[in-house]
Nucleic acid binder design. Structure first.
Lengths: 159, 159
DNA sequence: GGGCTGACTTGCGTTTGCATAAGCCAGCGA
DNA sequence: TCGCTGGCTTATGCAAACGCAAGTCAGCCC
């Protein structure tokens, strides 16, 4: 099994999933909106207050995220109230949870304030803290030294 | 065990590790530089070529990343060449691998082009593909529905 | 039909990110 | 000592992101 890192210049990163993911969720406010959405927030003014960005920025961001398929704009009606809209996570959006969790883990370790982390994700069944870890399809958990880089079907070779 | 999502307005996200992580690695180019660094790139012009940003932006980004402790600027000398500097990952930087991996997984699933992913991380020992997954300290792997949000020591409660 | 409220939109000015083009500088080889 | 090369820095300008302040609009309540 060849490791592509050994000949990094024989292939290009044009078709890169990391870059494409960053085009969609690459801005600070988008990530913070995802954090809130994953914590259950759904309404416009709750997002504004909890994320801490202004209304114009929030409106623009939410519109982009609906267009990108991370959120869905759903009408709802509370009794005695007019019809409003809320922003619900789609599957595409919910599946960003490992990204947000990995970011939170890293921030807890390397960028926390003196008091320690403010919130901890825990396993509902056993109460133990949850982390994003690297695991192979055979079930082995690993550190970064145990990883090779192999070619996928979309690899663009050079020369 | 209380779930903090049930009373989201009783606490604030001021002290948030996700936000602080985004302040450090929140820009597209920083993430792409981390991608390349984790693939083994170390030299200035290799970063410029492989990441696809201009030299001024790269110089500024690398300087920030060294200041943030993600990279270290190390002098080296190839025989017959003058002394140069390369950018090596620190432990702080290397530990972003789960974040980058989670982003790549998500991009492969939700933002890939028709050809499929260009590269696949595999386990060196068994060759199976590697993913970032959520796992609790007791060893259970889980989906997003199995997660509670508990208070950490740094939580800021309100009124 | 007039007020109120949640959910935006508009306008303006600032900051940040990045591109392009050009210039600088250290030192090795000749 | 002179040119070459890798590794930047400087100059300039555009475009996107964001904050603040103010305005709009829909419709339920009265």
């Amino acid at each position: 099994m060849e490791d592509l890192r050994d000949d990094r210049d024989s292939w290009s990163s044009e078709n890169c999933s990391v870059a494409r993911a960053m085009d969609i969720v690459g801005s600070r406010s988008t990530v913070l909106i995802m954090r809130e959405a994953l914590l259950g927030t759904r309404r416009f003014d709750d997002f504004v207050r909890r994320v801490g960005v202004g209304e114009p920025a929030m409106a623009a961001r939410l519109k982009e995220m609906v267009a990108a398929g991370l959120l869905e704009r759903i009408p709802y009606r509370e009794p005695g109230q007019r019809t409003r809209h809320e922003y619900q996570l789609t599957r595409k959006g919910r599946e960003l949870l490992p990204v947000i969790t990995a970011l939170r883990n890293w921030g807890d370790t390397w960028a926390a304030d003196d008091a320690g982390p403010s919130i901890v994700a825990t396993h509902h069944d056993c109460g133990e803290p949850v982390r994003a870890v690297l695991r192979c399809a055979a079930g082995h958990e690993m550190a970064d030294g145990d990883i090779d880089i192999a070619a996928g079907p979309g690899l663009i070779r050079r020369g």
